[in-house]
Computed example of a mutant assay.
Amino acid sequence: MKKLSLLISAALASTSAFASVDNSSDVSISHKSDWNTISVYQESYGSYYGNTSKAYISNGSDGNYMDIMQYGKGNYSNAKIDGKSDDNYISVYQDGKHNNSMAYISGYSEYNDIEVNQEKEANQSYATIDYKSDYNKIMVDQKGRYNVSNAMITGDSDYNKIKVKQKGNGNYSHAMIWGDSDKNKIKVKQKGDYNSSHANISYYAEGNMVDVNQTGNWNRSNVDIYAGDYNNVNVSQYGDHNMSDVDILGGSADHNYVTVMQNGDYSHSTVKIDDGGYYGGSSSYNTVYVSQTDNDYSNVNISHGSSYNTVYVTQY
């Protein structure tokens, strides 16, 4: 009887472990395979926890279309375009909590589109354009609270666009352009309270544009430019008790243009232009505009040999 009880317990444990993992899909298009259409639909509810989807387009494969739909909680999607693969489109839709999406374009791949839509709460999205991949687009749309979006353009990748939209409370967006990546555009739009946005341009990334728009109360925006020239950053905040921090640092952080507009009460703006020993030399010829309305605070600090900068502060 004791032996039978152990066998039954082992069987129940095995069944429980199996039930915790649902469907898995692995799709690969490679070696100059063009104009294919693939649709993946995964659904899991009840005792199941999560589907897994991997989509990979590589080695000179062009004009392909992938549509990935996942329903339930704890889903994982990994979409990758690599190896001189152009004009491809991947759409990822996740409906549920605690989902995770990874989108990756790399290796001289151009004119590709990846679109990620996540609904419910506590979802995460990671989008990367890397290694000399130009003219690509990634769009991330998250609806719900406590969502996280990480978007990065790096590795000498130019003329790319990333757009992040978050609707709900307590969301976080991190957008980064670095590593000799020029003339890219990142747009972040957040609607709700207690949201946070961090935009970073660094390591000789030049001529890029970052636009951050936040609507709601108690939101925060951080913009950092480290050793990058001729970049344009625009921050717009609508609501009360919002905070904006702008740092332009490093000897090669010159000729940047930053605009901060805060429309609401009790807002806080900080602007810092400082070499501080980051890359040597001074941070020069930068222009910053700060506009605030009603009971607000503005702080501007220019130091460590930073010269020929212009800062305008307007408070109504």
Rank of each mutant, 00 (worst) to 15 (best):
M1P: 14
K2A: 11
K3W: 14
I8D: 00
A10E: 03
A11L: 08
L12K: 03
S16V: 13
A17R: 13
A19P: 14
A19M: 14
S25R: 00
S28Q: 15
I29E: 15
K32A: 04
D34L: 03
D34H: 03
N36W: 06
I38W: 05
S39K: 00
Q42G: 03
Q42R: 02
G46H: 15
Y49M: 09
S53Y: 00
A55Y: 00
A55H: 02
N59H: 08
N59D: 11
N64E: 14
M66A: 04
M66R: 00
M66G: 05
I68G: 01
Q70Y: 06
Q70R: 09
N75L: 12
N75A: 14
Y76L: 08
Y76N: 06
Y76W: 02
N78L: 04
A79D: 13
I81V: 12
S85H: 08
Y89T: 15
Y89C: 15
I90A: 04
S91L: 12
V92H: 14
Y93V: 09
G96T: 12
N99H: 05
S101Y: 05
Y108K: 03
E110Q: 07
Y111F: 13
I114E: 09
E115F: 10
Q118W: 07
E119L: 13
E119C: 12
K120D: 14
A122M: 13
Y126W: 07
I138V: 13
M139N: 06
D141H: 08
Q142T: 12
N147Y: 03
S149D: 06
M152C: 01
M152Q: 01
M152A: 08
I153N: 02
I153W: 03
G155A: 09
D156C: 07
D156V: 11
S157I: 13
N160Q: 05
N160M: 09
I162H: 01
I162Y: 00
V164Q: 07
K167F: 05
N171S: 10
N171R: 10
S173V: 14
M176P: 14
G179Q: 00
K183Q: 15
K183H: 11
V188L: 04
K191N: 04
N195M: 06
S196Q: 12
H198W: 14
A199V: 06
Y204N: 05
Y204T: 07
V212S: 12
G216L: 13
R220Y: 11
S221D: 00
V223M: 09
V223L: 12
D224Y: 05
Y226A: 15
A227G: 07
Y230I: 01
Y230F: 06
N231K: 01
N234E: 06
S236T: 06
S236H: 11
Y238I: 14
Y238F: 15
G239D: 04
V246Q: 11
V246N: 14
V260M: 01
Q262M: 03
Q262R: 01
Y266F: 09
I273N: 11
G276M: 04
G277N: 00
Y278F: 12
G280L: 00
G281H: 01
G281V: 02
S283I: 02
T287V: 09
S291E: 03
D294Q: 02
D294E: 04
N295C: 03
N295S: 06
S298H: 05
S303T: 02
S303R: 14
Y316M: 04
